[in-house]
């Protein structure tokens, strides 16, 4: 084929633009064909609606999540009432509305899960990119520190911190974000080291492109896949961790409706009111399972070879 190909010269330049299907578009199409991922997305949307509409449910039922309703919620023997028209999922041992509390609990779970993951992703990507791209002794020290951080269990660090500064939502988010950050930074750093030496980064570097431009325009788009997969798996981990801390009484204020705290409250009463255990347990399990399934689906969609 010669360079003055007559066919192209004859072709009018304003012909219809041919749009290629990008890797994201293809991944989205694959994800949409994945039944488990679609169902998971539906579950996540429902949980998000539950959280968003929590005040609405409080309004409809007329039950505040923190208020006790001993007259209507407890039987004459002092036991919580079961599910019904007034208390949709029943009441807890103190006479509070379980459904309304679970809806408000969804807010805590999603708040912690999403904000910790977002923080971890932003910082992890920035630090991982810089360390991986520039290398050198800073990178060596950082890699070592991340190894050490990741070798300590979340819970041990959380316990010590709670003992030192007291439990709070902010502390919970900080601990989760810190550990997730380490995992994220390690992955991004490793990937960046790989891309730094690729020919397409050399191509722009030989043109005199700035390191910032190379990191943002040339390396970052290639990291979206692994970062998305890791982030989508960090969300359920964070949710479980928040619930665990609250269950142990180390997370949010014990009166705050959080799924972990609700489950902790149920332990003395589920023999008489199994709903207290079953409803929050199922909700928590469904949420984390949905996020995990979606994460797996995203990974398969982005990397169909696996």
């Amino acid at each position: 084929m010669s360079l003055t190909d007559a066919a192209f010269e004859a072709e009018p330049v304003h012909a219809e633009v041919v749009h290629g299907k990008g890797p994201w578009q293809l991944a989205w199409e694959r994800l949409r064909r994945d039944k488990a991922a679609v169902i998971s997305m539906a579950v996540i949307v429902l949980v998000a609606l539950l959280a968003l509409l929590a005040p609405l449910f409080a309004l409809i039922t007329g039950h505040d999540p923190l208020t006790q309703y001993p007259e209507t919620a407890l039987t004459p023997e002092g036991l919580p009432v079961g599910p019904g028209a007034d208390f949709w999922l029943g009441a807890d041992s103190l006479g509070r509305d379980l459904f309304v509390r679970l809806a408000y609990g969804a807010r805590i779970s999603l708040l912690v899960g999403l904000s910790a993951t977002l923080l971890a992703t932003v910082f992890g990507v920035v630090v991982g990119l810089l360390a991986g791209y520039y290398g050198g002794w800073v990178d060596g020290v950082l890699a070592r520190v991340l190894d050490v951080v990741l070798s300590f269990p979340y819970l041990l660090v959380a316990i010590v911190l709670v003992a030192a500064v007291g439990a709070s939502v902010a502390l919970t988010i900080f601990v989760i974000a810190f550990f997730s950050f380490a995992a994220m930074a390690r992955v991004v750093r490793g990937q960046t080291i790989g891309y730094r030496e690729r020919e397409f980064t050399e191509a722009v570097r030989s043109l005199g492109a700035s390191p910032l431009r190379i990191m943002v325009i040339d390396v970052l788009p290639n990291l979206v896949a692994p970062v998305t997969v890791l982030a989508s798996l960090l969300i359920p981990t964070s949710i479980v961790f928040e619930a665990t801390l609250s269950f142990l009484g180390l997370g949010v204020d014990p009166r705050t409706p959080s799924w972990g705290a609700i489950l902790a409250d149920s332990t003395d009463f589920y023999r008489v009111a199994p709903g207290l255990l079953v409803f929050p347990a199922v909700l928590l399990l469904l949420t984390t399972l949905a996020f995990n399934l979606l994460g797996d689906g995203i990974r398969d969609a982005l990397d169909p070879k696996r």
């Binding site: 010669s2 192209f8 633009v17 041919v18 749009h19 290629g20």
Partner: peptide
């Protein structure tokens, strides 16, 4: 270089 210019949007 002998490429179809309409393909500039492809990957």
């Amino acid at each position: 270089v002998g490429l179809n210019p309409e393909h500039y949007n492809r990957f």
